[in-house]
Amino acid sequence: MNAALHHLWTPLSATPLLWLVVTLAAYVIGRQVQKACGGSPFASPVLIAILIVGATLLGTGTSYDTYFAGAQFIHFLLGPVTVALAVPLAENFALVRRHLSSIGLALLAGSLTSVISGVGIVWLLGGSRSVALSMAPKAVTTPIAMAVSDQIGGVPALTASLAILGGILAAIIGRHMLARFQIDDWRAHGLAAGVAGSGIAAAQVAALDEVGAAFAALGIGLNGLLTALLVPLLAALWR
């Protein structure tokens, strides 16, 4: 039995197809679990899928590189989906233009809060300088976060992990948290998700509301822009 399994496993584990199927299956399971929980954001399909795939990799002794060779086909679509966010953005141009000054103020406040509190908390709790610097750009979309982290002396791979952790957290507690402050406006919710939780939090909002999707797209794009310009400046001051 074990030998037969081994015969089957060895050729399969080398093809990209296996890990593509595992990733898709894990996400489908995640969605089913969320549906079974009445659509609760606490049952995040992204988190569930990451846990299932991670456990599978650890259980089978598969390296992340082998896994990524298969999963990169899914990863590649992050580019086109980022471009696709232009659609809800363009359809709500009039709304966005009317609130430009609000958007600018909220963006600046939220972005600075994220960078300063992230670095500050690591520093206060005795974390290392490289972890603090990796924390600084973690709220923005992963490719920008990694590039900025590299530029200021952080660890890009760690920043990517922090970006994902923060995004999952923002997606899970975002609605609940803002409801507590009596904010039920999709414009505020969308922008906050995009600024604080980038793609993962935006994905959660975008699935629920079109105006939210437009403001989340704007939050991701503008915060990426601001962080790429601002964080290297702030890092130069902190020496």
Binding site: I121, L124, V131, A139, L162, L178, F181, A192
Partner: peptide
Amino acid sequence: PILVAVAGSTILSLIVTALVMH
């Protein structure tokens, strides 16, 4: 420090952005 900073800064940024917008 990593977990507290990720959670703290994400939540703070979420609330500050939404409140200023609101």
